[in-house]
Design a protein around this nucleic acid. Structure first.
Lengths: 326, 326
DNA sequence: TTGTATGCGTTATCAT
DNA sequence: ATGATAACGCATACAA
């Protein structure tokens, strides 16, 4: 690979001038020299070495993103949105899949730190992710879900309590006599928000309520739902806390020969495109994925660990489709 | 961030010794010095700077992966498998989403080259991806799909001609009187293989055949299928060349009130987990995702652009589920 | 306006 | 066994 020195030699200038040309500064270059440099660079197919650049600048222009499962369409859509937002600011996105394993999450963070990412975007299933390493490395962190009080990281998220309330309220409006909550697998701020919103919605009504939990995967949700829908306390309608779980419920209903929504109704959270094309289409709380992604990148670029932490709540929208309304 | 020099100073040695300790070589270090270095490193929370290491070594221990759409479960599963395989060899995976746009693909390749990735794994929808830049940078490339003759890259793929043949044959066995092929959107080696296998399977039989194409997304496939299934030449069974398209067909059938498989049967390719949990479950040609991912990493790690190109064909398995068989 | 020289943090080649 | 030092390729402060 040709270096700036090679280009300089061919252009008959010094490597400094090559640098000035490729960075449009910080110092002016004569039109003539600029022209010679560009021609030489084209001829040699010179590309600046981002590694050397980063080592010198102390910035890699890269952001690490950790997702629990890239095969989950919601996280995939989010990752894509973040990548686009990062690219728009000339940053590279590194994606790490934690498989919802805390130790993998920790290892990805370590790996990203060694690779000198400038900042971190975290989607954890854990309540209190292990951010010690990130803090020691003075990396700004943005979580895309609610965090425990006192965590030293920013967060961008919708209000799941409110989302759960709205979704459950929607099911109540349909007149279903019993409503179930299919929550996430671990006790966390997020799952507590879902439970609280669900409870607030059903409070005072006469509906029978029940609650279960499953891992965030179709397979796990399907298994839990099949058992649930077969049991004596099978609910007439289910609020699932993610689209993946919602699809698991759809599959469970199908497996048991139950019609949706005639026998079981479902509404979930995320608003993935996959949910819009499931059979039947899934009612869902649609998250403002792009807005969240853009904001996360905006917060992290040109920011340091010393900047104040921000905690922002985004709006959402309930999209009613066939799964919850006849 | 502390550097090797800081550690050396605290340990009372030179930075060279620090390097030897952290790399287990290339020269021996006294047990005493090693102990002092490790203690100092722990105290300072020293982590080697992968950037400087890569600059010095001329290797970044990173692999670039370009996928057409990370929100497509097949590509997501593949990306996850590659990430795991890469991590097992202590390599980092960079993922770029081309959105099936050739220009984006090209830009990602450029960006990866500037970041000095050691090699490239490419999933392109294009027949002849633009690998000029990769060749100039002397990057080894592995495509995870068939390539045109003469392309200077390795490829790992199943035999889509055979897959199409097996899948179509399976539909014929069910006795469906007409069979349609829902192929990919562009003329490429892959789409030609699908068409050829389909043609070979129906050759000599009395079934009515038809062919359409759509982009590789549920939305596009659903739209094309709705129109198709409404038309006079609506097929009794469809072979779709990807699971995403297969799910689009399921959605189309649902939209038109057609039962699957009683009114329309579907079989597709990829064998994603999402397909196993669709309604109804999707019959599919299952790709050996993990084996392909592992092999791709194996080929690329410790290899250069000068090594011979390999073209390997992997086995697949037809998994019959409800969508194609009553 | 431009050339020279130093530093970024590591590895590796000299030395000793 | 280990200390000093020159790369790796770029950016930039310092000279000119």
């Amino acid at each position: 690979m040709p270096t700036a020195r090679d280009v300089a030699k061919l252009a008959g200038t010094s490597n400094a001038v090559v640098s000035y040309v490729f960075n449009n500064g910080p110092r002016a270059v004569s039109a003539d020299a600029r022209e010679r440099v560009l021609r030489a660079a084209r001829e040699l197919d010179y590309k600046p070495n981002a590694l050397a650049r980063a080592l010198s600048a102390g910035k890699t222009r890269s952001i690490g993103l950790i997702v629990p499962d890239i095969a989950n369409p919601f996280f995939a859509e989010l990752a894509r949105a973040v990548e686009v937002a990062a690219a728009a600011r000339d940053h590279l996105l590194l994606i790490g899949d934690s498989a919802t394993v805390a130790e993998h999450e920790r290892r990805h963070i370590e790996s990203f730190i060694e690779r000198q990412v400038d900042s971190l975007i975290l989607i954890s299933l854990l309540d209190e992710p292990d951010l010690k390493a990130a803090h020691l490395a003075r990396l700004p962190v943005v979580a895309l879900h609610p965090l425990s009080e006192g965590q030293l990281a920013s967060s961008l998220t919708i209000d799941y309590e409110h989302a759960a309330y709205i979704a459950t309220h929607h099911l109540l409006e349909q007149g279903y006599a019993s409503i179930g909550l299919l929550n996430g697998p671990v006790d966390s701020v997020g799952t507590r928000q879902h439970a609280a919103g669900f409870a607030r919605a059903v409070a005072g009504s006469a509906v029978r309520v029940a609650e279960r939990s499953s891992a965030i995967s179709r397979a796990a949700a399907a298994e839990a739902s099949i058992e649930w829908l077969r049991s004596p306390d099978a609910p007439r309608a289910i609020y699932a806390t993610t689209d993946e779980q919602g699809q698991g419920v759809l599959f469970a209903a199908y497996s048991l020969g139950l019609r949706v929504p005639e026998d079981v109704a479902v509404v979930s959270v995320d608003g993935t495109e996959a949910g819009a094309y499931s059979v039947p289409p899934l009612s869902s709380i649609s998250q403002p994925t792009q807005a969240i992604a853009r904001r996360a990148v905006e917060i992290l670029v040109d920011r340091t660990a010393d900047d104040p932490i921000v905690n922002e709540i985004f709006n959402f929208e309930l999209i009613v489709r066939k799964s919850s309304k006849a």
